[in-house]
Design a binder for these strands. Structure first.
Length: 853
RNA sequence: GCCCCGGUAGCCCAAUCGGCAGAGGCAGACGACUUAAAAUCGUCCCAGUCAGGGUUCGAGUCCCUGCCGGGGCACCA
């Protein structure tokens, strides 16, 4: 309260975040300071992109984190004088809209676009510095038209094709899934249902043709993408190098080719195994006895019923049936019985393997179960120069060597050693034997060097309504006829009157008026499936560069100006799916001549999750923090600041461990500084408080590096430190009229513009500047203020600090050592000791190493 | 089973090249202001860096082994 005889200090006004939010959001809405207009602007450019959201309900705390952090980067580059493109849109096709529509009986459009409106309102409230003129929705025909264009381009190149094969089927959503959408436990990442296998004719993108490039180009991203994501992608692509070997089959005209990473053990092959669900197995068993055919049919049925979880349980007993057929080992002419067993996968390698039970655990388990021979061909007790020995010298001396008898021990011999029982390979080490046997096979024409991948082609057909229609038509013979480019888009018919409930075939097929078309006098039927929505998001970053262009997918000139994306920000849950697909499509567009780069995202930042009490937030667990409630309680700026300050961005934030209240108090404290400054804008800072000025310029010099290395938490801490120091300077001597106080307040406003935009704008205005602080420039640090007059040198005796000396930074080693030897504490510490060695690193350290006399 | 990341104060986290373990915050204690409280301002408290070994004049930092936590891949030949 202000008494009658005291002046009413305006600087005692309180920090009212609601008033600031109302004031500045209106200003931004009116002035649109973050819109990038194509045209002359010779500033350097940065393209900062946040992963666009899926419009399911309102924004949540995860969104709050990603958009806070992405905005720090965007706003940082603006302060550094860059023209920054920071667009936003919606990934608005997909199953949740359709499921909600079914549940509530409304059109998916209605649900989708009303959610988008809600999220857009929330984003504006959250003050993300987006360019609102470039908003796109993937569910707009203006967007998905170009999905269809992309599909047709890939079709022309043979990169989009149809094939009949076993696919992952989600029995709840009643649609197929890509391999990437099946979780490790065999359930759907959408519905959570156990995925089953179904044989269907579906569209694929030939991503495996790009496997080598997708793998090798990851090296370019080293240090720019999180190591974890690079590792996950490498793992997923799963290239293995080895050999293909052709085995003649008795009673079959063409040989069977197998893939192996261990061709060195070819002489140890004692049987062959084929996948039971492969065409090869079915064909081979045809020549067998009726009994064997029956056994095989039963076995096939059992394996197909087995759930993914059972199949993937490596500890379960090996099963299989003998097919009564024989293969001939090309290197020694031996007759190998052929078995069908489900530990061999039909869609990896060639679906057939040579089994070397002595040196492969799976084969050994199988051989022991079915009493098949085991032959050791690599003496793992023989030492190899240069390799880490399985056998120690001690073992050699005592003769206490591990047994070379896998049949008895049950342990396959996996180490290195020297080849035995292998004819021309005898005596060679494993690696030399691999090289040699491939040469021999190539000479004989029965084998060759080969690579294989875990990655499979990308299945893009979905039997659902709310997606991009596949622009293909079929004639009566089922031949594919692409929709001509000039007839795009193939728009989705209205959902009205269509039964959208999952029933295993696309609802679009039931829209007869839509599905039946006359094309060049022919009656044709449209493909009724829609595309996987990951197609939509695999190139959207290009569409942002010319979002309203209705003549092309993207303007190549704008792409040249802006792309690739300089900074991509989003969750690690997209480490494989979205990022791999976007990388693939970028390489396709490169090959088609549309873009001049091969990687879409130069730098990637994965933010962690926002959790509560150590666990992922979930409504069922009741541990949910609601975005809008947090904003109501603490204000937008405090929530954003908390996101940045909580810790390294890639770490999870436990909302219990952080303090939005603390952030709010700090912002109020910073904001009050701007009200206390009594000097006018534009004053000379030169004769301000020297200590504070040094601090300010150290701050100016350090913060850019912190932001660029994503140490947002440290940058915030440094801002708090500067505010504290300024507070002290005002209270303890210099007063609010000191020029350095104004300089500090202005720098704090600039720094806060990255984290707390409303507070920063208001500080900037209270300091007498025109808005917007977001468009101001980060000042260059004055280097003369960065030079320290003195530094502290430490003196160690036997590793323990004995003295701290204040010295000039330019002090010579000799002078420093002399000073150290003159120190009382050091003299005392050296008493009775002989100095063995002295290490001097001027001006930081003098280190004495001694021994007692 | 294989691969990757991490472990610093009661809690969240800092610590350029190997050179004084502590920047910042939360929680806590105390004080100033106040009739009182809130708010504000100030002062203070707390670890020797998961354990063991190694390299080094010197290790939170580099190397090895182990423990704990998180993540990825996994019957992939």
């Amino acid at each position: 309260m202000t008494s009658a005889n005291e002046p009413d200090f305006p600087d005692k006004a309180s920090y009212d975040f609601s008033a600031l939010e109302a004031k500045w959001s209106a200003w931004w809405e009116e002035h649109q300071p973050f819109t990038v207009v194509p045209g002359d602007d010779d500033r350097p450019r940065k393209y900062v992109l946040d992963m666009f959201p899926y419009p399911s309900g309102d924004l949540h705390m995860g969104h709050a984190e990603v958009y806070a952090l992405g905005d720090v980067v965007a706003r940082y580059w603006r302060l550094q004088g860059f023209q920054v493109l920071h667009p936003i849109g919606w990934d608005s096709f997909g199953l949740p809209a359709e499921n909600a529509a079914i549940k509530r009986g409304v059109d998916p459009r209605e649900w989708t676009y009303s959610n988008i409106d809600q999220q857009k309102t929330s984003m504006k409230r959250y003050a993300a510095s987006f360019d609102w003129s470039r908003v796109l929705h993937t569910s707009d025909p203006e967007y998905y038209r170009w999905n269809q264009w992309l599909f047709l381009k890939m079709y022309e190149k043979g990169l989009a094709y149809r094939k009949d094969s076993w696919v992952n089927w989600d029995p709840v959503d009643q649609t197929v899934l890509a391999n990437e959408q099946v979780l490790p436990d065999g359930t759907s990442d959408r519905s959570g249902a156990m995925v089953v296998k179904k044989k269907l004719t579906q569209w694929y993108f030939a991503i495996t043709q790009y496997a080598d490039r997708l793998l090798d180009d990851l090296n370019q991203l080293e240090g720019r993408w999180p190591a974890k994501v690079l590792a996950m992608q490498r793992n997923w692509i799963g290239r293995s190098e080895g050999a293909e070997v052709d085995f003649v089959i008795e009673g079959r005209s063409t040989p069977v080719t197998i893939f192996t990473t261990r061709p060195d053990t070819l002489f140890g092959a004692t049987f062959m195994v084929v996948a039971p669900d492969s065409d090869l197995a079915a064909e081979l068993v045809e020549g067998a006895s009726a009994k064997a055919q029956k056994a095989f049919a039963d076995y096939l049925e059992t394996t197909q019923k087995a759930s993914e979880i059972d199949r993937q349980d490596a500890s379960r007993d090996k099963t299989g049936v003998f097919l009564e057929r024989y293969a001939i080992n090309p290197v020694n002419g031996e007759r190998l019985p052929i078995w069908a067993a489900d530990y061999v996968l039909a869609d990896y390698g060639t679906g057939a393997i040579m089994a070397v039970p002595a040196h492969d655990q799976r084969d050994l388990d199988f051989a022991r179960k079915f009493d098949l021979p085991v032959r050791v061909v690599l003496d793992t007790n023989a030492p190899i120069t240069g390799a880490i020995p399985v056998v120690t010298e001690e073992m050699l001396e005592t003769g206490d060597l591990p047994p070379l008898d896998p049949l008895a021990t049950g342990e396959a011999l996996s180490g290195d050693g020297r080849m035995i029982n292998s004819g021309p390979l005898d005596g060679l080490s494993k690696n030399n034997a691999i090289t040699r046997v491939i040469e021999l096979l190539e000479d004989a024409g029965t084998g060759r060097l080969a690579k294989t991948y875990r990655l499979r082609d990308w299945l893009i057909s979905r039997q659902r309504y709310w997606g991009t229609p596949i622009p293909i038509m079929y004639d009566e013979q089922g031949r594919e006829i692409p929709v001509p480019m000039d007839q795009l888009p193939v728009t989705l018919p209205s959902g009205e009157g269509l039964d959208l409930r999952p029933k295993g075939s696309s609802p679009l097929g039931a829209a007869k008026d839509w599905a039946k078309v006359t094309h060049e006098g022919q009656e044709l039927t449209r493909d009724a499936d829609t595309m996987d929505t990951f197609v939509d998001s695999s190139w959207y970053f290009l569409r942002f560069l010319s979002p309203h262009d209705d003549t092309q997918a993207f303007d190549v000139n704008e792409v040249e100006k802006w792309a690739p994306v300089d900074q991509y920000v989003g969750g690690v849950e997209h480490a494989i799916l979205h990022l791999l697909y976007a990388r693939f499509i970028t390489k396709v567009l490169f090959d088609l001549g549309y873009v001049s780069f091969t990687e879409p995202f130069t730098s990637l930042l994965n933010q962690g999750m926002v959790i509560l009490d150590g666990a992922k937030m979930s409504k069922s667990k009741g541990n949910v923090v609601y975005f809008s409630e947090e904003l109501d309680s603490y204000g937008v700026d405090a929530v954003r600041l908390t996101m940045a300050f909580a810790g390294p961005p890639e770490d999870d934030i436990d909302w219990r461990d952080v303090s939005p209240v603390g952030s709010q108090k700090f912002l109020a404290r910073a904001w009050r500084l701007s009200g206390e400054v009594t000097t006018q804008p534009g004053i000379e800072f030169g004769n301000g408080d020297a200590t504070l000025r040094k601090h300010i310029h150290r701050f100016l010099a350090d913060v850019p590096g912190l932001i660029e290395s994503f140490k947002f938490n440290v940058a915030v801490a440094r801002t708090m430190e500067l505010v504290n120091h300024t507070r002290k300077t005002i209270d303890q001597g210099a007063g609010p009229g000191d020029p350095a106080v104004r300089e500090a307040a202005e720098v704090v406003a600039l720094a806060l513009s990255m984290f707390a935009p409303h507070t920063a704008e208001d500080m900037w205005e209270r300091l007498g500047h025109e808005p917007s602080v977001a468009l101001a420039r980060w000042p260059e640090a004055d280097h003369s203020l960065l030079v320290e007059d003195t530094v502290i040198a430490i003196v160690q005796v036997d590793g323990k600090v004995k003295e701290r000396l204040e010295v000039a930074p330019a002090i010579t080693g000799e002078a420093l050592e002399t000073l150290a030897r003159e120190s009382e504490a050091v003299i005392h510490a050296l008493e009775g000791k002989t100095i063995l060695n002295v290490v001097v690193r001027a001006p930081k350290v003098v280190s004495f190493q001694t021994q007692p006399q």
